[in-house]
């Protein structure tokens, strides 16, 4: 279980997180929604320690994430980055098998390659993609490779940072379905940030809406449409009128 309590983070004078409280129970898929620039990415990165929060506590199974030993801590996570963040100096299979080729999860090259190809197949890519370089792939394929890399070492917790941004609606649907399937079959805890409402409906068990540095609304996905929180309503309907200021 991931617990955030009263998490604050500022960049210079700009307060991004102003006291975030959130619980993500084990095995659940939590989707965090909110407009661009509301600090969703910062929230995700604070849990991983890529960004150091200013105050408040972030606990993973009761242990403070800032005190945890880094290697075993990070080994529990997989992350799919917004732009896939594949290493362009390495072929696709070495990207997927990155964690399996170094550190304490290291195994023989042939075995790592086999696992990589198996994971690529899991995300719907053929084995002949394995020896291509990331720059030779389309955006959707890069996302799939990123997804394969995130699940390669069978993590307990997977983070998805805007998994469908920049993809066409059909590819978005494919990625959403893949995420849902993989999370369910691995029994993983998932935390996704997105502003794509069709992703939200496909992926989420629970939803939290981040606005103005705090969680405005949180609840099960099924309650989303009947909730009467004005911020959430405006976000779901995509209306320009409402409590959330739209800069034109």
């Amino acid at each position: 279980m991931i617990t955030l309590s009263d998490v604050h983070k500022s960049f210079g004078p700009k307060q991004v997180l102003r006291g975030v409280n959130l619980e993500v129970p084990k095995g659940e898929s939590m989707v965090i929604i909110g407009g661009s620039g509301t600090g969703k990415s910062v929230l995700l990165k604070s849990v991983l320690g890529l960004v150091r929060h200013d105050s408040g506590m972030i606990l993973l199974d009761g242990e403070d994430v800032t005190r945890a030993a880094r290697d075993p801590f990070l080994a529990r996570f997989g992350m799919l980055f917004q732009g896939a963040a594949l290493f362009d100096s390495l072929p696709v299979w070495q990207n997927v098998a990155f964690r399996l080729m170094r550190g304490h999860l290291k195994r023989p090259k042939s075995e790592a390659r086999e696992i990589a190809i198996e994971k690529l197949r899991r995300v719907g890519l053929k084995p002949d993609v394995a020896d291509l370089y990331p720059s030779e792939l389309s955006g959707g394929m890069q996302k799939r490779v990123g997804l394969a890399r995130a699940i390669a070492a069978e993590p307990e917790i997977i983070f998805f940072d805007e998994p469908t941004t920049g993809l066409d609606p059909i590819m978005s649907g494919v990625i959403d379905d893949l995420i849902r399937e993989i999370v369910v079959e691995m029994g993983a805890t998932a935390m996704t940030i997105t502003h794509d409402m069709s992703s939200v409906r496909a992926i989420a068990d629970k939803i939290a809406m981040l606005h103005d540095g705090v969680i405005q609304w949180t609840g099960p996905a099924a309650d989303m449409d009947s909730a009467d929180d004005p911020y959430l309503r405006q976000f779901i309907t995509g209306s320009a009128d409402g409590p959330i200021e739209a800069v034109r």
Binding site: L50, D71, F77, F81, G83, L86, F87, R99, G103
Partner: peptide, 16 residues
């Protein structure tokens, strides 16, 4: 370029 495309962050999350 690795930094702005989040490849450095990706390295860290992959325990490197």
């Amino acid at each position: 370029t690795m930094k702005v495309t989040e490849q450095i962050d990706a390295l860290v999350t992959l325990s490197t």
